[in-house]
Nucleic acid binder design. Structure first.
Length: 103
DNA sequence: CGTGTGACGCGAG
DNA sequence: CCTCGCGCCACAC
């Protein structure tokens, strides 16, 4: 697994674990909250290689589209989100404006 | 040490 | 609406 700064990684874990059910966050938002707005892609790396118990399904890109490398594919991702009450359209996109969450 | 790539973002054209 | 280019960083080759 890629080596990421422990502090940054820790912050990402904390932020992601605090995302309430039925809400989503963007990679850039998380990165900014962790003090590294330029490292949005790294959040993705952490998401891919990081702990599975965190609600990564609530993390989407700025346009509201679901992540591409999610285990099980976007369909699985979509189902998980809909189970939480998040509306996902057929383009695998969520209403980012309404569902975006910020602490 | 140069180049390409990535679960990304944003502005410019 | 689209594509293109640049931004920053970590990693593989």
């Amino acid at each position: 697994m890629p080596r990421v700064d422990n502090e940054f990684k820790n912050k990402v874990y904390k932020v992601v674990s605090q995302i309430p059910q039925g809400r989503v966050m963007t990679y850039g938002q998380i990165a900014a909250l962790c003090g590294a707005a330029w490292a949005a892609w790294e959040v993705g790396q952490i998401a891919h290689f990081g702990p599975e118990y965190l609600p990564w399904q609530r993390v989407v890109n700025k346009k509201g589209y679901l992540a591409n490398g999610f285990p099980g594919g976007k369909e699985h991702h979509k189902i998980l989100l809909e189970t939480e009450g998040i509306v996902v359209n057929e383009e695998y996109q969520v209403n980012i404006k309404e569902l975006i969450w910020q602490p």
